[in-house]
Amino acid sequence: MSRRRPGSVRRNDVKGFLLRRQGSRCFYCRTPLLNRADATLDHYIPYTLWRTWWAANLVVACARCNRDKADRLPWPLVWLLLAHAPAVTGRGAAA
Rank of each mutant, 00 (worst) to 15 (best):
P74D: 11
M1Q: 05
D71P: 01
H43G: 02
L34W: 12
R4H: 10
L34N: 14
C65R: 09
A63F: 06
W79H: 08
A85T: 15
W54H: 13
L81A: 07
K69I: 04
G16R: 04
W50Y: 06
P32E: 02
P74Q: 05
R25S: 01
T89S: 13
G90T: 09
Y47T: 00
G7A: 02
R20N: 09
G23S: 03
W54D: 12
R5E: 13
P74K: 06
S8Q: 03
A56N: 01
D42E: 11
R20P: 00
G23E: 02
T31F: 03
H43V: 07
A55F: 00
L49Q: 06
W75V: 14
L33N: 03
C26E: 11
A94K: 15
S2E: 12
R30P: 01
L80E: 15
G16Q: 04
H43T: 06
A56Y: 00
V9G: 00
S2L: 08
W50V: 01
A61V: 03
N66V: 08
L18G: 09
V78T: 13
C62T: 08
A95I: 12
F17H: 03
K69R: 08
R72Y: 08
K15D: 02
L49F: 12
A39T: 05
L41H: 05
A95Y: 13
S2R: 11
M1G: 09
N35T: 04
L19V: 03
C26L: 04
D71T: 14
K69Q: 06
D68S: 09
R20Q: 12
R67L: 14
R67W: 15
T89C: 14
A55I: 08
N66Y: 09
F17Q: 07
N12V: 04
G92P: 11
G16W: 02
C26R: 05
L80F: 15
P74R: 08
A39D: 06
A87R: 15
W54R: 07
H43C: 05
A95L: 14
K15N: 05
D38F: 07
R4K: 15
P46G: 04
R36I: 11
M1S: 12
Y44E: 07
W79R: 10
W75R: 12
V14I: 15
A83F: 10
L82F: 14
I45C: 07
Q22M: 09
R10A: 09
P6M: 12
V88R: 14
D71M: 12
N35A: 06
C65L: 08
P74H: 13
V14D: 02
L19R: 08
R3Y: 03
N66T: 10
A37P: 00
R64Y: 01
P86I: 11
N12Q: 13
L33A: 02
R4I: 06
Q22E: 12
V59E: 02
L18R: 08
V88L: 13
A56D: 09
T31L: 12
T52F: 03
L77P: 02
R10V: 14
P6A: 10
A94S: 15
I45K: 13
W53G: 05
A39E: 04
L58G: 10
N35H: 08
V14E: 02
A37D: 10
T31P: 00
I45G: 00
G90A: 10
W53Q: 02
A55Q: 01
A93D: 15
R21H: 00
W79C: 07
D42S: 05
H84P: 02
